[in-house]
C-alpha cells in the first residue's frame, strides 16, 4: 500500500459532549475506528473533525490518558512496572461500576485493543467473586432460566456458591 509520510499534525476528535480533543497520530492509530477514518482518501487532517457520537469527553480523555501513559512507559524496562501498576490502579479507582462498563463500551466502539484488554480484565476482576444476581444486574442480562432449572444448577454445584460476596 502506497503511503504518504505520516502528517505531523494532530487529529481532531469531537466527543458527543464537550470540545474537540486533539490527539497525536500515534495515539489515533491505536483506535482502529479512527484509523479507518484517517485512511479514507477524503480525509484531510487539517480540516476534518472526526465526530464520535457514542463517546463522551470523559471516556475519550480516559482512553487517551491510558494510551499516553502506556505508550510512554513502554520504552523503559522493568523498573516502571511498579508505577504502571499504580497508574492502572488509580485509573480504575476513579471509575464506578457503571462508568467502568460505559468506558468498556467506548473502547469497544473506538476499537482500541490495549484499553479493551485492560478493561476486560478489570471487569473480570470485578465480577469474579460476585453473586449471579450482581452479574445479571451489572450487565443487564435477563435471567431466562425457570426457577426449577436455576435451583437445579445451584443444587448440583452448591459448593461453588460458597464464599461469594453479598451485594
Amino acid at each position: 500500500m502506497a503511503k504518504t509520510p505520516e502528517p505531523k499534525r494532530t487529529i481532531s476528535l469531537k466527543p458527543c459532549d464537550g470540545d474537540v480533543i486533539e490527539v497525536s497520530p500515534m495515539i489515533a492509530k491505536q483506535m482502529q475506528t479512527i484509523q479507518s477514518f484517517i485512511e479514507d482518501d477524503s480525509f484531510i487532517a487539517t480540516t476534518t473533525i472526526i465526530p464520535l457520537p457514542n463517546v463522551t469527553a470523559f471516556q475519550l480523555s480516559k482512553i487517551i490518558d491510558y494510551l499516553n501513559y502506556h505508550s510512554n512507559s513502554k520504552a523503559v524496562a522493568d523498573n516502571v512496572k511498579e508505577s504502571t501498576k499504580k497508574f492502572d490502579e488509580e485509573f480504575l479507582k476513579e471509575l464506578e461500576h457503571d462508568k467502568l462498563k460505559e468506558l468498556l463500551h467506548a473502547a469497544n466502539y473506538l476499537n482500541v485493543k490495549e484499553v479493551l484488554d485492560f478493561l476486560c480484565q478489570a471487569v473480570a476482576d470485578l465480577i469474579q467473586d460476585k453473586s449471579v444476581k450482581f452479574v445479571r444486574k451489572f450487565f443487564g442480562v435477563v435471567n431466562d432460566y425457570s426457577v426449577e432449572e436455576e435451583e437445579d444448577i445451584r443444587r448440583t454445584h452448591a459448593w461453588a456458591f460458597e464464599g461469594v460476596e453479598e451485594d
Binding site: 449471579v132 432460566y145 454445584h157
Partner: peptide, 12 residues
C-alpha cells in the same frame, strides 16, 4: 472456579 456459579447467569 467462578464458572460454576456464572453458569446460572443465563442460558447463553
Amino acid at each position: 472456579i467462578s464458572y460454576l456459579s456464572l453458569k446460572s447467569v443465563s442460558r447463553a
